[in-house]
Amino acid sequence: MKLTINGQTQDRSGTCSVATLVAEIIAAQRGVAVAVNGTVVPRSAWGRVDLADGDRIEVLTAAQGG
């Protein structure tokens, strides 16, 4: 399946939950938020939500800013 993660497309095989994807991208959990196709996925649901072909995922965290 094709996923777009923070603007980069990626081809993957098999199923992949939000939790699996986040763990691959960033070690920290605190300070991380995820949206799939523009909808926020609460942290408590990361393990339950499987990604599907064509999904657009944003994985955001704290950056310096006023």
């Binding site: 923070n6 603007g7 920290a28 938020a33 704290a62 950056a63």
Partner: peptide
Amino acid sequence: TVALRRVDAAGPGLLP
């Protein structure tokens, strides 16, 4: 204050 940015652009260490 902190901003929210994509993880690859945000750089580590701020929140800790």
